[in-house]
Design a protein around this nucleic acid. Structure first.
Lengths: 138, 138
DNA sequence: TATTGTTATACTCTATAACTATA
DNA sequence: TATAGTTATAGAGTATAACAATA
């Protein structure tokens, strides 16, 4: 019994996640890329925009508009590095962290429901395998 | 211990699959959408282009250029339905089926290697969970 | 009139290259 | 000169609406 190709399966699952996640983010005034950036910045400040772009896989030129908006919303600060004023240090504001954490809580709930399609016993195994597989790509 | 979000994990895995699959398809002169269409047509002929578009998630207007090219390559036939000449029946040619099956064999090999990152015992469970989860979305 | 396939248009996202400011 | 950030331009992919043929 042949299963569908991985590309088909991952594509369907990713689309399902995105479809459920976008309304959550929209309720906070965010789009997907905003969420990616906030999540990366929650781990640590970005010493340069180029590094933030590399970390998140965002094009460095498209990053700019996102940051403009996030700064406008008061979720992110972008200040020149005194040591080298070509660089701009990007970091979360307290409000940015609050908004992110609220979104993350809603996303966790959404994910629990999505994975509810799996028998309870298999869910933890599946999640572990998913993380291991993603880690094996590096 | 928190795991990354599902969106992040599925995105990484899908990109990894695409990166490994595109060279395989390119070697056969195909792009990703061509492969999606050939795969759908391998299951059964499409009685109308609109139905093929709906099945594959392709926009019906963008489908046209793909079919033009696949017909040009001799992989697909597109003939008016005598019963209702508004419709065009789309089906695989023998050559189309040959090309598809060669790609599928290479893709299976690529997938085995990709999933090799998982301990052997967990792989079958992971694949089953993946299929079950995708099926639960309908 | 309604539907299939097609074409044309505009909109979004992305990639490339030029520009500025700092070093 | 080299690098970080920015801006401008063009390209690919997509969605929307109008059009032609058939029913």
């Amino acid at each position: 019994m042949e299963r569908p190709e991985l590309g088909y399966l991952f594509d369907r699952l990713l689309r399902a996640v995105i479809a459920r996640e976008e309304p959550i983010l929209a309720a906070a005034g965010l789009r997907m890329w905003d969420h990616v950036l906030l999540t990366a910045l929650a781990r640590q400040d970005a010493p340069t925009q180029a590094q933030l772009a590399a970390e998140t896989g965002r094009d460095k030129t498209r990053l700019i508009g996102n940051l403009d908006r996030l700064v406008e919303l008061g979720l992110v600060s972008r200040v020149p590095d005194p040591a080298d004023r070509r660089n701009r240090v990007v970091s979360l504001t307290a409000e940015g962290r609050r908004v992110l954490e609220r979104c993350q809580a809603d996303i966790r709930a959404m994910e629990r429901e999505l994975l509810g399609g799996l028998p309870a016993g298999e869910r933890a195994d599946f999640e572990r395998a998913l993380v291991a597989l993603a880690a094996s790509l590096d």
